[in-house]
Amino acid sequence: MQAFLKIVGISARQQMTYRTALVAGLFTNLFFGILRASLLIALYQGETSVNGMDVGGAITYVALSQAMIAYLTIFGNTEMGRTVSDGSIASDLIKPVHFILLWLGRDLGRSLVNFVVRGLFFIGLFSLFYSLYYPLEIGRWFLFFVSLIFSWLLNFFWRMLVNLGAFWSPDIQGFARLAFGFSQLFSGFVLPLRLLPDWFSRLSNWTPFPGMMNHPMEVYLGIYSPSQLLGAFGHQLIWLFILVFLCLALFRLGIRRLVIQGG
């Protein structure tokens, strides 16, 4: 546990050294956030509410999902997959820590920095342009943060699963782009699932993806009924178990096929 915390700590410190990148990322998020919000306002065409979400809620949804891009690494990455193809995975495998736990620590450290710099700072800046909803009950904040932790874990294991493909293919870029495209769409990042056709959001509920973005956002907005709330957490938890299991199984299989090229 102490080792895990140290890894989280050093990863956070490493992330802090990239100050310029952090600030640049923050402003990119802000630019596209404003763009997305303007588009949504245009789509509402003066309607007060669409499928239980009003304009203010939709704007808050955009703000929060934009703020969570870096924290959740919603666009995905192939960092771990690259260590398989270039052999630098060797340095991780000679450490007496479970490989997936090592990456969990690394990702968590980075995400915590991103949560503050590209999350909280983002909300601060974005609220200068649009007025956002803030829940008044402590309970809802609590549920939101729990849901946000689950969504972080789901994102992590989903990314890990895609990257584990590197044990089978020397180049996973194309495959990863497709996979992360799917997860962005079905998670409700591109548009809130509530604003998409019913058949689509029903379909998405059969995937782990709504738990990665849509659930925490709607928990925050308080749109869910108590039973829907329970369903959302259950959905996140079940998929977390499935993804963790798949990652562990694929890692065990993949590691036996490992070929480390060069020196």
């Binding site: 080792a3 915390l5 140290k6 890894i7 700590g9 050093i10 050294t17 990239y18």
Partner: peptide
């Protein structure tokens, strides 16, 4: 990107 001693501290925990 970090000082050598920081890495050594992490290894100490690992």
């Amino acid at each position: 990107d970090l000082p050598v001693i920081d890495s050594l501290e992490v290894l100490k925990a690992i």
